[in-house]
């Protein structure tokens, strides 16, 4: 079963919720945790895995053999991203424009194109002290595209026997978020009861709805802001699964790298109940 945590707005506590949920789940089931926020991966800072597996990932980009190339220009003609250009007796490849689709390789009549990996980041995996099977993607600085790394991370399953998988999504509501959410059984939408939180929750709720994934909401920093998030959840039939109040001691503990359930063990029953609800919902 795959549970994804997403939020729209950044900093609402996705990782806080995802890591504590993983902790609770790991007490009964085998758990795999994927940090899909490859631009800013933070879950490892809290779960403290020993990372002993590593794989470079990226996309396959074309390499043109000057000997066999006849400069016919077919590759440049089919490339939608203008990542390959033929001018005179030269074929130029622009790696940062390439999406790795392979169209140029397929159309080359001379088979003059081979592909090689353009590394955009790494996948790292290992185990946490609680035996959570952990993996994260880390995008290289300066790279624009997160999606290929997320795609590879989700495929990188040396051991797929885990009963529960938790995928921690990046913030926002564009392609990297969709790439993370695709294929999940349940979406846990973490928000805060503020106008910004609500605005961005709506965006991500729409994606989840379009992908036809059942969802529930966690209200973090409950007590600040206003009640508009609550009203929205009620109107949209989104169940509110947990409320975590705004408490300075929690904020301080998380800032220093503690897990929510370490800092505030009194929320353990809420997390257990939430996990049960999700499992029941998915199994139904």
């Amino acid at each position: 079963m795959q549970i994804v945590t997403a939020s729209g707005k950044g900093g609402t506590g996705k990782t806080t919720v995802a890591t504590s949920l993983a902790l609770i789940a790991a007490e009964q089931d085998s758990v795999r945790f994927l940090d899909c926020d490859v631009e800013a991966p933070n879950a490892g800072l809290f779960l403290e895995p020993v990372l002993d597996a590593r794989k470079e990932v990226g996309i396959l980009i074309p390499q043109v053999d000057e000997e066999t190339c006849t400069y016919c220009g077919k590759c440049a003609e089919v490339c939608q991203f203008h990542a390959i250009a033929v001018v005179g007796k030269k074929t130029l490849v622009f790696p940062e424009l390439c999406h790795g689709c392979g169209s140029c390789t397929l159309v080359c009549p001379e088979n003059a194109i081979t592909e090689h990996l353009n590394v955009m980041g790494v996948l790292e995996g290992g185990s946490t002290p609680e035996q959570i099977d952990f993996a994260q993607g880390v995008m290289n600085v300066g790279e624009p595209m997160a999606v290929p790394i997320i795609r590879e991370l989700k495929k990188w399953i040396p051991d797929s026997s885990s009963e529960i998988e938790i995928w921690d999504a990046p913030p926002g509501a564009s392609c990297p978020v969709v790439e993370t959410i695709r294929g999940a059984d349940f979406a846990l939408l973490v928000t805060e009861p503020t106008p910004f939180g609500l605005h961005d929750l709506k965006q991500v709720a729409e994606i989840v709805k379009e992908l036809d994934i059942p969802a529930g909401v966690v209200i973090n920093r409950d007590g600040i802001g206003d009640s508009a998030v609550e009203a929205y959840c009620e109107d949209s039939a989104l169940p509110i699964l947990i409320r975590i109040p705004m408490e300075r001691r929690i904020a301080e503990a998380i800032a220093s790298g503690k897990l929510l359930l370490e800092a505030a063990p009194e929320y353990r029953p809420d997390f257990e109940a939430m996990l049960k609800t999700i499992v029941a919902e998915v199994s139904a």
Partner: peptide, 30 residues
Amino acid sequence: PGIGCPVISATSGADLVLIVAEPTISGVHD
């Protein structure tokens, strides 16, 4: 947020970037 495509587009051509950092373990890392 992040460091990917939209951030690179936002940064390109800028004269100055102000980073609003948060003194949390995640904030420092990012």
